[in-house]
Amino acid sequence: MTTIATRSAADVAISVAATIDGIFATIDGWRDLLEDRLAAADALTAETVDPLVETFAVPAVSGTTLLTGAGFVAAPGALADAQWHLAWWLGTTSSADGVRRLATIDDPSHEQFRDYTALEWWRVPQATGARHLTGPYVDYVCTDDYTVTVTTPVMRDGAMIGVVGADALVDRLERVLLPVLRTGRSPATLVNASGRVVTSTDARREPGSMLRGDGLIAAVRALSPVPVRLADGTSVLACGDTSLALVVGI
């Protein structure tokens, strides 16, 4: 006889958090490196910043990894030689080494220029001074696919000089997270702080769709480590401090 082991929702949430925390820890390490190396620089320039970013971004998106993009995005005017600047690398199979640098348009007068300071992955860390998980969203700039982006501020002399971060394709995250969700005793859906689905054991709940219900969003944003039971029988609990929540039950 084969016994199928099942785990509590709390244990599942802990396992989900461990995966996301690994990404957070990596990005925090990049931030610390940049802040340490740039603190003593006489002037910040793309010429000096880019090679430093490349040392961690390229390995991060090379080979088999959850990450598909990584790098640094400068605050407008922070670099002496570039008003707008991204140093971002993408994992790809289209080039010989499997990695390419993201081509960007940095001239505000160009019709295809995009002000990245209006985007969530920039705007929220700038406002809060803390790391932020954006998505899932369709990343039309880099992948044209559902993506999760994690960014955190890089500081110098008390001012934010940019954000450092990484992209992870949702389908790659699903390969890791779905087996974890399936070890639970009940159907489970992983959502972000807006109730948007990251992945689910219910095939009807596709990544990027919104999960709705009375009291759901309030429970998700409460990020309680203890399951909060809703009127429809579902329960919601935080996945550590990742800003993601696990919705289990019906």
Rank of each mutant, 00 (worst) to 15 (best):
L66Q: 06
P125W: 01
L86A: 15
H132C: 09
V247R: 02
A18E: 13
A41T: 05
T152P: 11
L133H: 03
S15E: 11
L230G: 12
T189Q: 07
T65F: 00
Q83I: 09
W84Q: 04
L230R: 10
D202T: 09
L246Q: 09
L86E: 14
A82P: 15
S109E: 15
I23H: 04
I4V: 12
A39N: 14
Q83H: 11
T117W: 01
A70M: 10
T45S: 05
D36K: 13
C239Y: 05
G162S: 12
D106S: 14
A80S: 10
V12I: 15
G129D: 06
A168N: 04
S209Q: 01
T149M: 03
D139S: 03
G184D: 03
V58H: 04
A130Y: 13
T6P: 04
T234G: 02
R114G: 12
T201E: 11
T234F: 01
E35G: 00
T93R: 13
G213R: 05
G195D: 01
L133K: 08
V164M: 08
G129P: 06
V220N: 08
R37C: 11
G208K: 07
L230M: 06
R205P: 02
R229W: 12
S15K: 15
D11Y: 03
A78I: 00
D167Q: 08
E111I: 14
P153D: 10
A9L: 14
S224M: 01
G135C: 01
R172N: 10
T234E: 06
R101L: 01
V163D: 02
Y116A: 05
R37S: 09
E111M: 15
A9E: 14
